[in-house]
Nucleic acid binder design. Sequence first.
RNA 1: GCGGGUGUAGUUCAAUGGUAGAACAUCAGCUUCCCAAGCUGAAUACGAGGGUUCGAUUCCCUUCACCCGCUCCA
Length: 565
Amino acid sequence: MEMEKLVSLCKRRGFLFQSSEIYGGLNGFWDYGPLGVELKRNVKEAWWRDMVSGHDDLSVLPGAPDSYEMTGLDCTIIMHPQVWKCSGHYDLFADMMQSCRQCKKLFRADHVWGLMRETEWANAIAETLASNFDAEQIEVDAEKLAKWAKDRKGGRRLAPGLALVRHPENTLASLQQSLAEMKADSFPVLLQHLATEDKKTSGLLTPCPECGGDLTEPREFNLMFETIVGALKDESNKAFLRPETAQGIFVNFKNVLDSTRVKIPFGIAQVGKSFRNEITPRNFTFRSREFEQMEIEFFCHPDSSQSWYKYWRDRRMQWYQDLGLAGERLILREHDPDELSHYSTGTADIEYAFPFLPAGEYGELEGIAHRGDFDLRSHMEGKLDEKSDPLVVQLDEHGKPKYRGSGKDLTYRDELTNERYIPHVIEPSAGADRATLAFLCEAYREDSAPDDKGNLQTRTVMSLHPRLAPVKAAVFPLVKKDGMPEVAKDIYRALKPKFSVSYDEKGAVGRRYRRQDEAGTPFCITVDGDSLIDRTVTIRDRDTLEQTRVRIDDIESEIENRIQS
RNA sequence: GCGGGUGUAGUUCAAUGGUAGAACAUCAGCUUCCCAAGCUGAAUACGAGGGUUCGAUUCCCUUCACCCGCUCCA
């Protein structure tokens, strides 16, 4: 399926428009049209019904370790700025940053060379060459450098990411070629050469102060959209639009406990807008800057968190499959251990092979993460250092917490055992827009159907699951005369309070069927000559084109049954 | 963020330094007893800003958006 066809259908039929289109559009922002809003609402409502309001908390569901409760929440988009400091979002995304392509560490661009002076491996090189940071001209001894690079106690240990260590021959060859052209170099420039395997293709790279790997160009990381609370524009009342809904759940954990009598294990669900100032929004709505999330934070006892993690991973996968993403384009990908934060004992992504991705690549629809007690404890004690093991509060240069937590007690007391503990958290975090896009991609189909002369014509169909379809049924009089419109209108009025239905009497009936096919309407009800005599109508199935006759009085239950099946 | 490409009607495409066309879709009417039929009629477009020019949709610059590749993706 070509993506352009889907994009143009979405525009043509009113699923998706570019935001602010009459002004030329705005990168990374998309609007849902009349059909799109129904589709997306249905996705969110299916999620809420299946996960929250329709949840059976009395039974032990298949695959679950125990019965559990589910409850909901709807919190604000703008929260206390401290929330984002403790969550870790604030630190990661401000100022000009460079990240290391080898060890992935992020640095403020203006700190890199300052850090380098303190760096063990950089000083070791200075020592090897009997030079220093302020040297204007360096005596380069390739032999000594090569020896240091291969030394287990030298380069191998101190700067595993450095090009000189990873590919000594190439790097030294590249260096010597440059020296022949330039003669003299300062020490920092020499370090850059040592981080560059092939200057011709990559340009001169800056080494990572940590591991010696090559850094990306300095980039501004403004992940979070900023705003001002209050009338005066002032640094002190700066606030952020949330980049995820999850933190609102964590900071309300105690409120929910105190107000609802829920007992662990239980989950809190939330659907809502989030905002990320993406560096490269692309691929239709896949990476939008304003998007909607459907998140659950599931709180459980540390001892049982592993089995709850597995339960949620499989449950969420099944949900997408039940709603039509049943084929090989949907995969569950368990993260490798080295991809995980060390405090996480498991993370899985549910991914879909979107048509705009290269063959064999998948895009994330949902991540299910085991987050341990990281979030609750951060909001309690102060931001935890993700690299510490066991997790401890991250301190500033004065030995105080870098970001103070709330100081509130977010532990849970088991009333039966009297045990007090910080719950562990399983986080199934789904993208509503990404799910909607995946359903649209999966639904798009072209097949052949005969026209009135029996010639095969291309037919474009959106084979959406009936639960998701924006319009459940369309009601037509076969022709616009002989009392058929009146009967059809009565049927339409009778169905309207129950389902989303549409009425159409214009033009040939075949055209009306095709129009509904493009909108994804699963059923078309047609009033014909016989209807006036025996009060029956035909129901036409979008996917099979089959028509069956049912009594007018049975239409509602017939549609109800077909949507459920 | 870098490089390349593309912006004309709702959609898909033409043409042009001097009145911008088509197909499909849309709307109105006629016709029509089951899958985009037919006939008649109607409405609708040069992404935005600036420059060159008597005159710019066309040439130039800037900008915005989209597509492809690289980069990135908490």
